[in-house]
Write a protein that binds this DNA or RNA. Structure first.
Lengths: 352, 352
DNA sequence: GGTTTTTTGAGGTACGCAACTCATTTTGAG
DNA sequence: CTCAAAATGAGTTGCGTACCTCAAAAAACC
């Protein structure tokens, strides 16, 4: 009736006895210290395997003495998403300090590869682990690899640098996110046919480009009744987004769907609600899908002007980054399932 | 440029010095041991507050010596959702044993209040914390309260007992889940009008009843073009679900939407796909929304027979339950944001 | 005042591991 | 076989806390 999932209560001493060696040798094997014959290494490792021995993390952490330091390298300037991440880290402060972990924010211009690379260089002396919102660029890749070579643990956050040797990526698959947005727009439009607009910050940003790619892919293959208009660029600014979108809405009366890939949401909403006013009495308004749950998108969803938001939980990203860095530093296994960031579909009734 | 989020490096000794007392007295205050004057307690607590002191959890855990034991009290019999929870706990085994935690599964008939209550009684001697999938019933409530009084930490899992003094509930708001399902069905049906069917395991189950309530609420207030048919009961069995649904589909040609509240998904899918065959060539098939991501619902989503699944991440629930029990046992604060279970909308393109 | 009771201090041990030293044994090369 | 190098054993110390004992001091009581 009761089935136990864990058994271990062994210590290093037990492993040493089983392997027929001394504590010192087990310690050498466990920490890859030199001076142990390959054959002995094997025997010790076998004893560890055989018993599924896990060092007591509390004891290890205590014996270690030194506190661990992590850095979050993030864009300077007022970025709501990044501010949320920082706020969530702040909420963890008790959790962090009771584990003698310190987390520091390092602001830099992540959009300038040389500046970012320069910021990263030299950080390895001060930190055991680094989470970075990185641009995918050869200079940045090299800087990351240097950190890794110096023994620093590195995770990329939100935006990946797949060509680097970073240990982990914390973020979503942006192509899949774009596909999800496409499917939502297509399905919510229903049987109507017409045009679909896309507005992005810039097609030069990797995450925006990937989202657009996924979105168009789905529209083309599954919703033949809908035609996608050329991508507008709003530079993630409200004023510009409103302007270019209003112009487009004026030119095409048959726009039935809109995908806002980045920020500038207030501008998009302004343009849309103006059109909704002039359409009053007509059938249905434009289906509007965007990204991220903020105070603004939350309000728009409740009002009904926005239909769905694709979201990556920033709190989860912040905590996952810390947990993964900690696990890497301790040599613990990572719970992949736990650290994976999901693509959340948020509508009015499942607002978090 | 670099902003630190943590500072602590103090120990109990520092607190003792600041408060002008000895280590022993700080220890007495910290663990609510008797024999300390109220005034002294205040001075010590002030020193702790002033420095935002957090005991080093690793040291505390090590000094404690004794391992912590948790139990998961779950339904007996083959329940896929529960099996998933158990599987995810298995994936955590290294994490658990490196913290000297043991988790045991206790199977019982959770649908019989007296059996469940009897199972719970007496568990407090063996376990420091208990996660239970509980029926909301006075006898069960009393059993939970007894556990709490005995000092055992209790969290309810998936299904809550709000009237009890359980420390925490790990699960979703089922009314909101039903509302979400309703909004999805309504929006995906589009401008068509017609009938909507609901099939549940039993309306006597609290979670099913709540989901139905939320679903009907949304349909009534927001989709006047759709009328909801009386709720079918399939007892979460494939055969019965298929039978009652097929009969309903035969009687009503104008069914445009279907909400499957519980299990029996295979039966529902059989009935639906049969209808789809006979409808071949017609406009559109029935919008089908159900619950949980399993091997089956995953396949149905990919095939397009199912349109969306409302999901509560079972891995998250399992891990959250363990984390919350551990935090409660240690007297650590709980990261509410982290432990909150979200209502996930899963469609083909954001399948996890 | 003296006596009892309460409060506080001082100190020790243990937890499991990291990190280190130094002596001893084993191995391999010549 | 000899000798240096490599491998191993044995042991120590300290991390910060929990939990315990015993004595001393302070407070409360009569």
């Amino acid at each position: 009736m009761a089935e136990t999932l864990t058994t271990t209560a062994l210590t290093l001493k037990d492993i040493a006895r089983q392997a027929g060696v001394s504590l010192a040798t087990v310690d050498r094997v466990l920490h890859n210290r030199p001076g142990v014959r390959p054959d002995t290494v094997r025997r010790v490792k076998e004893a560890i395997e055989r018993n599924a021995f896990q060092p007591h993390v509390a004891a290890a952490e205590l014996a270690r003495g030194r506190a661990r330091r992590f850095a979050f390298v993030m864009p300077s300037g007022p970025n709501p998403f990044m501010q949320q991440i920082e706020a969530y880290l702040g909420e963890m402060s008790a959790w962090l300090s009771s584990r003698r972990l310190s987390v520091e924010m390092v602001a830099t211009d992540v959009f300038d590869p040389s500046v970012l690379a320069a910021s990263l260089e030299g950080l390895s002396d001060d930190y055991d682990g680094i989470a970075v919102v990185a641009l995918d660029h050869p200079g940045v890749r090299a800087a990351i690899d240097d950190l890794v070579d110096a023994g620093t643990k590195v995770v990329t956050l939100v935006s990946d640098v797949p060509s680097s040797r970073r240990h982990h990526y914390i973020g979503i698959d942006n192509i899949a996110a774009g596909r999800t947005a496409g499917a939502l727009v297509g399905r919510l439009v229903g049987q109507r046919s017409g045009k679909v607009a896309i507005i992005a910050g810039s097609q030069g940003l990797r995450d925006h480009a990937e989202r657009i790619f996924g979105f168009i892919q789905v529209m083309a293959s599954e919703f033949p009744g809908l035609s996608v208009l050329p991508v507008l660029e709003g530079r993630d600014e409200d004023a510009r987004s409103e302007q270019v979108l209003a112009r487009l809405l004026g030119r095409h009366a048959d726009i039935v769907g809109l995908y806002n890939v980045g920020a500038g949401t207030q501008g998009v909403a302004n343009a849309l609600s103006e059109k909704a006013l002039s359409d009053a009495g007509r059938d249905r308004q434009v289906v509007f899908v965007g990204h991220d749950v903020t105070a603004l998108t939350r309000r728009l969803l409740l009002q009904g002007l926005m239909d769905a938001a694709i979201s990556q939980n920033p709190g989860h990203e912040a905590r996952a980054a810390v947990r993964v860095l900690l696990a890497l530093a301790r040599g613990e296994p990572i719970l992949r399932e736990q650290e994976k960031i999901r693509i959340d579909i948020v509508m009015r009734d499942n607002l978090p």
